[in-house]
Design a protein around this nucleic acid. Sequence first.
DNA 1: AAACTGACTGTTA
DNA 2: GTAACAGCCAGTT
Length: 117
Amino acid sequence: MQEDSFFQQVYALVRRIPVGTVASYGQIATLLGKRRSARQVGWAMRALPPHSGVPWQRVVNSEGKISLSGCSADLQEALLRSEGIEFDASGKISLERFGWQPELEERRLQEKEEDER
DNA sequence: AAACTGACTGTTA
DNA sequence: GTAACAGCCAGTT
């Protein structure tokens, strides 16, 4: 569990998820070029030590729901709410509103550069 | 070494 | 709407 293992790649990517947005396990896997390795992303999150600095709470399943059970789920929801993310009546996050969109980020960056030019 | 277990997901029925 | 299944792979029996 070191070097540039799959887990490390996952952590590096999860660290880039902006505050107030969420990504799905599958999305992380896809961005890493492992389209069907969502489960391993879940493993990576599970293996995470408590004070790793990785914003694990920003990773939810493809429905926009929390995939944990028990008190861990409560913690995740609390963390996300504190970041400004809202849940609907069924405990679901609107990926439309809060989903991480790396491509849009790039676009915004480009637009900003154009403005400054 | 083999079988089993998941913080998953898209497809198929 | 539900259910089964395949694909993926690290860790744990």
